[in-house]
Nucleic acid binder design. Structure first.
Lengths: 227, 227
DNA sequence: ACCTGAACACCGTTCAAGT
DNA sequence: ACCTGAACACCGTTCAAGT
């Protein structure tokens, strides 16, 4: 009967599993950003004492590894009915879509020191695309270095303008740029005409990502044909 | 006289300046890694109470901005006596050398949300190389997106194998790879023959960086000539 | 044997009390 | 008016005491 009361009190006291821990963590990070994801807050969201998490995850690093695995799991498998270039291109764009759904994911991926089996499997199939596509071992290796994190669908932007967008401060920066950074000013002022503001997120990130991706894929293809 | 004792006790009690704070912080990070750089430890290294730092730096974020500025300050200025391609190539390689001297720097740069004036000036002169080299505004913009952080001399490696290098665990991973990740195995086992171990840091990072850089510069040059 | 509250050893930063 | 010790509100994680 005390059991009954407990059950009612905690409603359907779902047992804590690694999967539920990870799912809740992804949710928390999606909602409040990765910096708001602490072991303590995660425990609270799961209605559990912090120490209970350590049954399913050795430490926070392992939790972060798990989050990356969840995101990689959302990437479509590689097509097997086309050439290497199309298959790689489409898969990378699928990876990019997964990362856009979880804006914290690329930063967490950067911070990992050792690849998980899931990440290794992803890499292995990517390399497989090249090898079965006729690339030599050497060229494959160079290509991997060239693509870097782009293989996982992201690239290092120069500055992550997550834009707190204080319009006053922005206008001021704008003014300063014209004088002291003429070339930056020139670019920004002409590029972002399509958007509402003169400054702001005036460029098409998707286009720019594909531009760089294709420049690399084309360059890589040329090297392959030459060898 | 009590003054005299104090002076002797603290020896040449150098006054705290922003520059001395930054220099010590760079030193600390160089020596013990960026994760060992806390406001408290920095204060201790300067033989000062933690709060004293806040006179020279508004918060830790500003300290990190300052560190990035120090590193950018070590990059050679752009040559003015060559074509855009050579000037850009050499400057990026100079930036890379600066980053190699401070292994924590690229990670700190990634974490900055807003560029400092020093970073903006660097970017402005980089863009200037392209513009005076005959690039259209549009192409210049695309190039910036393509190069991304490479402009600052670094690229996202797939995994930062800072190698704790537990040889036993490494051998085990090696064994697992052959079976479950055949393509990764194939690459690693053939590439790193030049080095001592079969695994290990068997590839020439400098070569790989330049390979990718040149692939991009060549692709960019081709686009420019076409337009 | 299992579970967990309290504690530890840290953070960055605030603020009021001291000089 | 300046300086700073103590305190605050957090962390991730250990561990011994409780059941």
């Amino acid at each position: 009967m005390s059991t009954e009361i407990e059950e009612t009190g905690a409603l359907a006291r779902v047992p804590l599993t690694r999967e539920r821990v990870l799912r809740t963590a992804v949710d928390l990070a999606d909602r409040g950003g990765i910096e708001s994801l602490s072991m303590r807050k995660l425990a609270q969201a799961l209605d559990v004492v912090p120490m209970a998490l350590y049954r399913h995850v050795a430490h926070k690093e392992e939790l972060l590894d798990g989050l990356v695995d969840v995101v990689i799991g959302e990437i479509d498998p590689a097509r097997t009915d086309t050439d290497w270039k199309t298959a790689m291109r489409e898969r990378i764009l699928s990876a990019r879509r997964a990362l856009l759904r979880h804006p914290w994911a690329s930063r967490v991926m950067e911070s990992r020191t050792a690849p998980t089996p899931v990440a290794l499997a992803y890499m292995d199939s990517m390399i497989g695309l090249l090898r079965t596509g006729g690339f030599s071992l050497e060229l494959t290796h160079h290509v991997l270095h060239t693509m870097g994190s782009r293989t996982f669908g992201f690239a290092q932007e120069l500055f992550n303008d997550s834009g707190d967008s204080d319009p006053e401060a922005e206008a001021q920066m704008w003014e300063a740029m014209a004088g002291t950074y003429p070339y930056i000013y020139e670019i920004f002022s002409t590029i972002s005409h399509d958007d509402t503001s003169v400054v702001g997120a005036g460029c098409d990130d998707q286009f720019e990502f594909e531009f760089a991706l294709d420049l690399m894929l084309d360059g890589i293809e040329r090297l392959k044909d030459r060898s």
